[in-house]
């Protein structure tokens, strides 16, 4: 029957209080084994305190060619940054 084990994306929380971060991917027959493999592959040196595994095909990504239309609108809105405003020195730190 030989079919390849599906691909999983692995997210690791490095320390308490931090976000899970994408570290890579691996093949595993099911979610439980994916967690075990992720432990062996991505946390051999205390790199994590928590693991998420997500089937790669469950991820929907923005398209690289949409980069312009997708992100341009916010690039044009400089007033969203605190540095846009001049606050007089007398007012103190804000």
């Amino acid at each position: 029957m030989s079919s390849e084990w599906p691909l999983w994306e692995i997210f690791i929380r490095g320390q308490h209080g931090l976000n899970h971060r994408h570290v890579g991917s691996l093949h595993a027959p099911d979610a439980e084994m994916a967690v075990k493999h992720a432990r062996d592959v991505y946390t051999r040196r205390n790199e994590g305190v928590s693991i998420w595994v997500v089937p790669s095909n469950a991820i929907t990504a923005s398209s690289p060619s949409d980069k312009g239309p997708l992100f341009e609108p916010s690039n044009a809105k400089v007033y969203r940054h605190p540095t846009f405003f001049d606050i007089p020195d007398e007012v103190g730190k804000m």
Binding site: M1, S2, S3, W5, P29, D30
Partner: peptide, 16 residues
């Protein structure tokens, strides 16, 4: 390793 790779896939399908 073929029987092992296939076996784990079969197990995963059964669990599902």
């Amino acid at each position: 390793g073929a029987w092992f790779r296939d076996g784990l896939m079969a197990h995963a399908a059964k669990q599902r």
